[in-house]
């Protein structure tokens, strides 16, 4: 039994690096895009820009990740825009994450008292300085716990990339099943690996919540 588990784990190990790269790649896109969209959506006076961002967010938040990956990988692939499966997964999950985090950062900004901004412009800060030095650091702090939850969700969602043949953990598991027939054990092991990968993230969220506390 232990032998088998060891054998399976070693076989699945090959997928971990892809799982982690997809998670990190998508996370980076999501944070940068989400912060950009969140800031612009919160502060621009331009109605059309606000509307465009709203459309983007609503679309990506109300369509399943699997559909988006299929559109990018099979759909765009069929019209000549062929992406690798890992690239497609990073891009698709990152674009979805951008929409999710746009809302998260927006909520962070709108939680701030208007006096925070007023005090900044009153000492002569420009709007850009006010956002960068005063508002964004506070909004990001407020956004950290939901950001952590998003990261855990993202880690799990990378498993969806197996459906477009990205060689991550689930993909390895599915391949392994066809050659060994130890299906139950294989999927339990795969689940266990995800769980182990997510534990440090849980820890991180807890310590963030403790550190910055509620109501600061």
């Amino acid at each position: 039994m232990l032998d088998k588990i060891q054998h399976i784990l070693i076989a699945l190990l090959g997928g971990i690096s892809v799982t982690i790269s997809v998670t990190l790649g998508a996370l980076i896109i999501a944070v940068l895009l989400g912060l950009l969209l969140g800031v612009v959506r919160s502060f621009t006076k331009w109605k059309l820009l606000r509307f465009t961002i709203d459309v983007y967010v609503e679309l990506f938040r109300n369509i399943p990740a699997l559909a988006i990956l299929f559109i990018i990988y099979f759909g765009l692939g069929s019209v000549g825009l062929r992406l690798g499966s890992v690239t497609a997964a990073i891009l698709g999950l990152g674009l979805i994450g951008g929409a999710v985090l746009c809302d998260v950062f927006r909520a962070g900004f709108s939680a701030l008292h208007s006096g925070q901004r007023e005090a900044a412009i009153a000492i002569g800060m420009t709007p850009y300085q006010t956002i960068r030095l005063i508002l964004a650091p506070q909004a990001i702090r407020i956004a950290l716990p939901p950001l952590g939850n998003y990261a855990i969700q993202l880690l799990k969602d990378t498993s969806i990339a197996s459906a477009i043949a990205a060689p991550e953990i689930m993909f390895f598991a599915r391949t392994l099943v066809t050659s060994t027939f130890e299906t139950t054990l294989i999927y339990i092991c795969a689940a266990g690996i995800y769980l182990l990968l997510s534990l440090p993230l849980f820890r991180a969220i807890q310590s963030i919540e403790k550190r910055f506390g509620v109501g600061r």
């Binding site: 599915r174 130890e182 139950t184 054990l185 999927y187 339990i188 849980f202």
Partner: peptide, 23 residues
């Protein structure tokens, strides 16, 4: 809560549908 928030839905589905028949 910890376990099921850490495991992807897809792994659960595969386990239930493809895995459990094995036992």
């Amino acid at each position: 809560v910890v376990v099921f928030r850490g495991i992807p839905l897809l792994a659960i589905l595969f386990l239930l549908y493809f895995g459990l028949p094995g036992i």
